[in-house]
Computed example of a mutant assay.
Amino acid sequence: MKQEVEKLTKWLRHKVEEAGANGLLVGLSGGIDSAVVANLIKKAYPDHSLGVIMPCKSEGEDEKHAKEAAEASGLQTVKIDLTQTHDTLLPAIEQQLKEGGLYEQGAQQLADANLRARLRMSTLYTVGTHQKYLVTGTDNAAEWHTGYFTKHGDGGVDLVPLVHYTKGEVREMAEYLGVPDSIIHKQPSAGLWEGQTDENEMGTSYDMIDRYLKGEEIPEEDKNIIDTLHNRSHHKRQMPAAPPEE
């Protein structure tokens, strides 16, 4: 694991130098993936790295864990509360849709959740522009394969250092890096609505996805769920579609 961490920090430095940037930032959600990335960017750029905490009608525990992750890694943070922005923008959009006869009640929860993720992405890039920092993503191999991220939200980043690591490997890295146990062992959740958890939303577990990615045998039901998630999220892992050149 020491070699993996050294390899990643070296890669992060190379990408920053390649881009002519000054350093790195990450959105701190209070989850294990962002806590690991916090440690990595702090190691890569001790004096030019930043964690951005962005509550948006969030659970208080998430912000508490985000602060714990920052303190444990020594990462400087800034808090930008997006609740008021979200409370202004979402109703305005919905009102205009209703007036135009375009509002669909069944789409409200997902539209709300994705707007929160995209507000956070916009915030990270605004902060990054001020500091000339690259935005570092937190998606792991399981999330990337299944498309468990918001397009142009938490998937809208410059770098994805954990994209080749399973959730289990990220957990091992977190333990090596000294991420607080309260974060390592919490139930994975994007915190996009009350009671939401990653595994309930996906319909399978990270353990099953990890085993699948390693080529191990898993129940057919879980395999079908993972394949379906992967196939329908294909567009998320691609550049915007364009017609072929003539």
Rank of each mutant, 00 (worst) to 15 (best):
K186C: 03
Y148D: 12
E175L: 15
L177V: 02
Y176S: 12
H185D: 13
L177H: 05
P180Q: 13
Y165T: 00
Y165W: 06
S189H: 03
P188V: 08
A142M: 11
D154T: 13
S182R: 05
H185I: 04
G168S: 12
V163E: 04
G155W: 02
M173G: 05
G203R: 04
F149T: 03
G156S: 04
G168E: 11
G178M: 12
G191S: 09
W144N: 11
P188L: 11
D181V: 03
K167R: 15
S205D: 06
E199F: 02
G153R: 06
Y206A: 14
G195A: 03
I184M: 07
L162V: 08
S205G: 11
I184V: 15
G147R: 06
Y206R: 10
V163G: 02
D181Y: 00
G153V: 06
I183V: 05
H164T: 13
W144P: 01
W144I: 14
K167M: 14
F149G: 09
G203D: 08
D181W: 00
E175H: 12
Y148T: 12
H164K: 14
E143T: 09
A174Y: 01
H152K: 09
P180E: 13
W144Q: 10
E201V: 02
T197N: 12
G195R: 00
T166S: 15
S182I: 05
E175Y: 05
G191Y: 03
T166V: 14
I184D: 05
D154C: 09
V170C: 07
G178K: 07
T204I: 09
L162G: 13
Y176W: 08
S182Y: 00
N140H: 15
S182F: 00
G156P: 00
G147I: 12
E199Y: 02
V157C: 12
Y165F: 13
M202R: 02
S205R: 09
Y148P: 13
D181C: 00
L177S: 07
V163I: 13
R171H: 06
T204C: 14
E201A: 08
G147F: 04
P188T: 10
P161H: 01
G203C: 08
D158N: 15
D154K: 10
E194R: 09
D158K: 07
L192H: 07
V163R: 10
H145A: 15
T150M: 09
P188S: 14
E175C: 12
L159N: 05
W144E: 13
Q196E: 14
V179K: 07
E169I: 04
E194F: 07
Y176V: 06
Y206H: 11
P188C: 14
T197Y: 09
A190T: 13
T146S: 08
V163S: 10
G153M: 10
